[in-house]
Design a protein around this nucleic acid. Structure first.
Lengths: 343, 343
DNA sequence: TTGTAGGCGTTATCAT
DNA sequence: ATGATAACGCCTACAA
């Protein structure tokens, strides 16, 4: 492996001169030597040893992307296109700026703090963490932390989060259902065995929006039905909903497309035609929803943009605006498919 | 930040003793001191500085997962559940063994070699690389390289790859279509603008299997239809196939579920009922296929298992069997859905 | 403009 | 059993 010392010898200069060339400090090296060294660097395929750089300089140019979701099943709902596209976008955006991505998955923030310290990361992006988890990270480390989809409360401060207008979006969707004549709407989201999952909290916002819209219309939100993360159990739940005639609802509001699709399949298997007998709406805008027949009506979000924004804000905190935190909410868009009937 | 030196001072021992405790070398430290140091380590929340470790010791405990797919669109077909679940599985498997994941995405193997050197990675997992790319990596670096879904030829040697029985699987699928009475079958896969994508090569294997099965049945494989990676263009292609009456085929064989789903939607929009008028089969076994109505008949693969196997083989090469390369092919499973009619 | 020297944190070797 | 020391590669301040 070629090191700075070796290059220095080959070029008949000192290591610091080589270092200056590496860092493109043209003002500190004569043009002649600069070019000579640069050429040798190229020829010898010199690459910096990041360990050594971490040791001597401040930054590691490493950013940790932490997936804080709890893993219920191996093929859990979180291993979905959403997470995939966030990861992809984060990776690409970091790479463009010369940063590297350390991917780590653990809901235990203690462990995450440890890893971040070990690797001297320059910053952290948290995906699917709880509010408490965010502060735990932020307060245990001296580097900026940006979260995606972490629900904060109105009194929280000093955080940067990339989220959606969940409350407004759910309200808009509910109003759309009203506009199509629906008055009895059942609301479904995900949870697991009594203990609330991180994602659940976002769903609380959506439920609040749904509820408020209902109340504004003089209706009663009949409650919130929790679906299991485990497919087997979910299937049973669908069956019990079916037996209860879907609580006499004319429309079902799901907080994730993938569940809406499952339910559609379940209904069609039982001769309940959608949307004629039952309307269904989802949330996310996944590709498969567009392939369904009928096409799923859903609240679309741009998950890759969430990743890009997270990187942008992290680098902003890192390189410029120390402590200038932001609560960012990306827009959503109501995609009107074919799963809602006018009644 | 607490360092070994600090711990040493607190415990009134030398840094080397602390280091020995950190590495659990009980035989080199007296039990009394061992416990004392261990306690202080815990109290002070000491964490290793990985940069320093990289510098002094050999290993970095870092494994690079390199996504070598070319990016055509931001939301390319490769940003699909398959990649997501491989990443998830690799990450988890590495974590369990005490390794860290550096995620990098770049089809240029020169760049990948550079990054791997910079970070002194202990090993590399390549996803979606070409045969040439694999050897480029392997020969440029002194660490083990394991690939997933890279197509090698029979004469290749010294590689570890995790793939499927693509040839056999396509044959099996084709034979299944025969068993349902189909004789005219059209084959569709992905490519882009003349230049072959990595994934394409796997599709060559599948096409070979399809072709051989056809020939064994005394039929002619009518050719191989390439779909664009760009959704817009694909839509146009579907339309032209439609105008050509799908080449008079009674069944369409897609090498990826997601395309099969798109085509199903396209057909249903035009009153071509599936499977009554046209049968469709896919490959992968994605979740949405199960939600479709009718349910997609497909060749299921276990993508997470690919990731786990890759890690297992990498660690094997790393820790034990230097140079003991393997060509691993995971089984697939024909899932019979509802998209193939008996004719 | 170029070179020298010390330090970053850890580990392995060697001496006590 | 424990400690001292050198080495890993890079960076920067300071000296020449």
């Amino acid at each position: 492996m070629v090191r700075i010392k070796d290059i220095a010898k080959l070029a008949n200069v000192s290591p610091s001169t080589v270092s200056n060339v590496i860092h493109k400090r043209k003002e500190k090296v004569s043009p002649e030597i600069y070019n000579r060294v640069e050429k040798i660097l190229e020829e010898e395929q010199y690459v910096t040893h990041m360990g050594a750089r971490m040791l001597s300089a401040k930054g590691s140019r490493l950013v940790a992307l932490i997936l804080a979701y709890k893993r219920i099943e191996k093929e859990s709902i979180v291993e979905d296109p959403f997470v995939s596209s966030v990861i992809g976008a984060v990776q690409l955006a970091l790479q463009e700026k010369g940063y590297f991505l350390l991917l780590y998955s653990n809901p235990d923030m203690e462990d995450c703090v440890k890893i971040s310290r070990e690797w001297n990361v320059d910053g952290i992006i948290l995906l699917g963490a709880k509010r408490e988890g965010y502060y735990k990270m932020k307060n245990s480390l001296s580097v900026p932390v940006v979260s995606i989809d972490t629900p904060f409360s109105a009194t929280d401060a000093e955080y940067t989060n990339i989220g959606l207008e969940d409350f407004e979006a759910a309200k808009e969707m509910t109003r759309y259902l009203f506009s199509m004549g629906h008055r009895k709407i059942a609301f479904f989201s995900l949870t697991e065995g009594g203990e609330l999952l991180e994602k659940h909290y976002i769903d609380s916002e959506r439920y609040r929006g749904f509820k408020e819209a209902m109340e504004e219309e003089g209706l009663v939100a009949e409650g919130w039905h929790n679906l299991s993360f485990v497919e087997e159990i979910r299937k049973k739940q669908y069956f019990s909903f079916y037996e209860e005639n879907f609580f006499h609802a004319t429309a079902l509001f799901f907080t994730a497309d993938i569940m809406a699709l499952e339910m559609m399949r379940f209904c069609m298997d039982r001769g309940i035609s959608i949307p004629e007998k039952l309307s269904v709406v989802g949330f996310d805008g996944i590709k498969a929803g567009r392939c369904m027949h009928p096409m799923l009506t859903t609240m679309e979000q741009d998950s890759a943009e969430k990743g890009r924004k997270a990187v942008k804000e992290l680098l902003f905190l890192l390189e410029e605006g120390k402590g200038d935190y932001k609560n960012i909410r990306l827009p959503v868009h109501l995609f009107i498919g074919e799963t809602v009937a006018r009644i």
